[in-house]
């Protein structure tokens, strides 16, 4: 049994302080990557900034609950998505009906219909502007958008996304599948003004 002396106590405090500083530095180093995801989990730039500050304040407060050696970026995003869900659920009630979705070829077909067949089909995507993508993403309902943003923009695995959002992996896959379809419908709406159900 070790005895607590002023020296061991001082050593413990020094170790803790060093670990905390290291944690904070690593968390800050990841902030660019976390922001890239947060920007689209939130509805606007301003909301993303608030969310980042709230999430980092909470992460710095609860740094002891992070297990060193595990995925810090996923841990930070779990805090952030929980905060975002709390806010989102207050502001936006889940609609009673699920959004309509089109097939996976819908966007290509719409772009081709409106501009005629491309000489080089690889360039069809260039008919979409960066603004189209940002607006279309923000129009995807929360539950679907969270998964699309984590996997397709944040580059998280299905398993990481499931853990971050605290949902089963099967739900991640089905929301991702539908979320991408909804995103394509929104992109068609942005780019060529296609309307629902056509």
């Amino acid at each position: 049994m070790s005895e607590i002396t002023p020296e061991t106590d001082a050593r413990r405090l020094a170790t803790e302080s060093r670990d905390r500083v290291r944690f904070e530095e690593e968390a800050l180093e990841l902030s660019d990557q976390v922001y890239r995801v947060a920007r689209h989990l939130a509805g606007s730039r301003e909301e993303a900034e608030d969310l980042m500050q709230e999430a980092y304040a909470r992460a710095f407060r609860s740094w002891r609950s992070f297990t060193p050696g595990t995925n810090l970026r996923a841990w930070l995003l779990r805090i952030l998505t929980n905060l975002n869900i709390d806010r989102g659920r207050k502001k936006q009630r889940t609609p009673d009906t699920q959004p309509l979705e089109e097939g996976d070829y819908f966007l290509y077909n719409k772009l081709e219909e409106s501009n005629g067949p491309a000489q080089d089909e690889e360039r069809v995507v260039e008919r979409l502007s960066q603004d189209d993508v940002v607006s279309a993403l923000s129009a995807v309902p929360h539950d679907f958008r969270d998964v699309v943003v984590l996997v397709d923009i944040g580059d998280f695995t299905y398993a990481d996304a499931a853990q971050i959002l605290d949902i089963p992996i099967g739900t991640v896959m089905s929301r991702l599948h539908r979320g991408r379809r909804i995103l394509k419908r929104e992109l068609a709406e942005e780019a060529v003004g296609a309307t629902d159900g056509r």
Binding site: Y35, R36, R39, E126, L128, S129, V133, L137, D152, I153
Partner: peptide, 8 residues
Amino acid sequence: YVRQAAAE
């Protein structure tokens, strides 16, 4: 393209 366009 979506990944690239969304990168802010």
